[in-house]
């Protein structure tokens, strides 16, 4: 799926942060934007409502650098999490190369996490894709909540077969933000090499 531009000598990857509303997807992009050095990042674009809820998407381009004469770039996107924004979520998944699923540790969001994952599966199916073919990792966010559910419990619900990489995170404090992004980037690059 990755887009290779032979004339501009660029390889572009699209990584989408998925998950239910308020799980911390936008926070991930904001923290990455704040922490990555200036030359490696582009502008952060947010299409949000007045109260900072994602309306369409957030977007952040990252430059990895040159490999074998090709500029390698990651375009990060978030989706709007709320259930009724599904048509927008579907549009953003177009051409996706890798997914970071951001799960919320709050007890009352367990069900919303599971529903969002099912929704991801359904939306991918509409593009003729399955979760097994797309590099995919999970970030279990908001580990700082006093009543956070045990990570293992969330893991069992979201990944009964235990095949997926999970990362605990407190995105608001930039803890566990780079790890899942690194992991999915690595998977995406390996995936590309295998398919070539």
């Amino acid at each position: 799926m990755s887009t290779i531009n032979f004339s501009a000598r660029e390889i572009n990857f699209k990584i989408v942060y998925y998950g239910c509303g308020m799980s911390g997807k936008t926070t991930n992009l904001k923290k990455i934007y704040e922490s990555i050095p200036g030359t490696a990042k582009g502008e952060l674009v947010s299409l949000a409502t007045e109260d900072e809820r994602t309306l369409f998407f957030d977007f952040l381009p990252l430059d990895l650098g040159q490999v074998n004469g090709f500029k390698t770039r990651f375009h990060l996107y978030t989706v709007p999490g709320q259930v009724f924004y599904n048509s927008s979520r579907k549009l953003i998944l177009r051409g996706v190369d890798g997914i970071v699923f951001v799960a919320d540790s709050a007890p009352n969001r367990l069900r919303a996490n599971a529903e969002s994952l099912r929704n991801l599966r359904d939306n991918l199916t509409e593009y003729g894709l399955s979760m097994d073919e797309i590099p995919y990792v999970v970030q279990v966010n908001k580990r700082d909540l006093p009543d956070a559910l045990p990570s293992d419990m969330i893991k069992k619900v979201l990944d009964p077969s235990g095949k997926t990489q999970f990362f605990d995170a407190v995105a608001a404090k930039y803890i566990g933000v780079t790890e899942p992004l690194k992991a999915v980037s690595q998977l995406v690059l390996e995936h590309l090499a295998q398919k070539a």
Binding site: I36, A40, L64, V67
Partner: peptide, 26 residues
């Protein structure tokens, strides 16, 4: 003929190094 890309050992090592460079080493 469409141009091709070579994803060799060198490519893997370079991308891994770049990812570490950008996000910090594992």
């Amino acid at each position: 003929e469409a141009p091709t890309m070579n994803f060799d050992e060198n490519w893997h090592n370079s991308t891994r190094a770049l990812i570490d460079g950008l996000f910090g080493p594992s």
